[in-house]
């Protein structure tokens, strides 16, 4: 039987470059914030709908091209601009230097609050993320540290005064443990975003969904090591699934492009219902569709 939930502890509120992330004391007590993510190092890795929107295949990652992508992205209604430095794993030194230079070139052009993201590969991220942080001239969100990378990443985050997303694989105990371990290293509990990891719509979404709800409930019930805002990389996961990538489906699955958009939007709606505070998406129109519904009157 469901017990009556005593709501007594709010989610921590992160004030980031004028944005308020979290702070609610019940599900949907605060509106989520949206980040638009760009594969800035190699745009060709983006989804077909994203390439269409930016009218680019991204075959070359020239700085001019990157500056253009950033300026188009900033015209869209996102709160945060997220840059994924999707560098290849080989020739690491050279590619990190290139990524660093690219970030330096882009910084003066970036007016929106910024999120910087690595590639989710241990050997790359432990080098790439600290190096990128060296070039930064402002507070940003760093994504992400894991059980395997936090020791190398956290010191640079503390030094730069940044906010850190910490990813654990759909496991509430591990999420809590990582918050304890990183705060023991000196990272403020008010500078942590919990990334529960998640699967895309139709491919394991329900596991991430339930872990988010469970973390929120634990937070509302008073757990001080779990009441950080939740970040969800909904766009990446949604656009990775077959329905959003392949047009070999029957007529009943609907128009390919429309369906791809809908997979991203619906994944976002679901994590929002589960309590996500910062939702990272890849298509500007997905953000627009959800945002206008949250803010507008009907």
């Amino acid at each position: 039987m469901t017990e009556v939930i005593k709501v007594n502890q709010p989610i921590r509120e992160i004030n980031f470059e004028g944005l308020k992330i979290g702070g609610e004391n019940d599900f949907l007590g605060s509106k989520p914030v949206f980040a638009l993510e760009l594969n800035i190092f190699d745009f060709s890795a983006s989804s077909h709908i994203v390439k269409d929107y930016f009218n680019s295949q991204g075959n070359q990652s020239l700085p001019a091209e990157a500056i253009n992508l950033v300026s188009v992205a900033q015209e869209t209604p996102c709160d945060i601009l997220a840059l994924k430095f999707n560098i290849p794993e080989d020739d690491l030194e050279k590619n990190i230097a290139k990524a660093k230079k690219l970030l330096k070139t882009l910084l003066p052009h970036i007016k929106k609050p910024l999120l910087i993201r690595g590639v989710n590969n241990k050997s790359v991220d432990i080098k790439l993320l600290p190096e990128l942080m060296e070039v930064l001239d402002r507070e940003v969100i760093i994504a992400f540290a894991t059980e395997n990378t936090y020791k190398e990443i956290v010191p640079a985050v503390i030094k730069g005064g940044h906010i850190l997303a910490i990813r654990t694989p759909i496991d509430i105990n591990l999420a809590k443990e990582m918050n304890i371990l990183t705060s023991d290293m000196g990272l403020s509990l008010d500078k942590i975003l919990i990334d529960t990891d998640m699967g895309g719509l139709g491919y394991g979404l329900e596991y991430g969904y339930s872990i988010m709800e469970r973390i929120k409930l634990a937070a509302f019930e008073g757990d001080k090591m779990l009441n950080m805002p939740l970040i969800a990389f909904a766009g990446e996961e949604a656009l990775k699934v077959k329905e959003a990538k392949s047009d070999t489906f029957s007529k009943s699955f609907g128009d390919f492009k429309e369906r791809s958009m809908m997979f991203e939007i619906t994944t976002a709606s679901a994590v929002m219902a589960a309590g996500a505070n910062l939702i990272v998406l890849e298509h500007p129109q997905s953000i627009e569709a959800i945002r206008s519904e949250l803010n507008g009157k009907r």
């Binding site: 609907g254 429309e258 369906r259 619906t266 976002a268 709606s269 219902a273 589960a274 569709a289």
Partner: peptide
Amino acid sequence: LKLMSRAGFYLCKYTNLLIFEDFNEA
């Protein structure tokens, strides 16, 4: 797309029936 965002949301929390005037396969 806006319709989709609302429908997904209400399916999670908390509806037993969703009725659509529009019919869109996707």
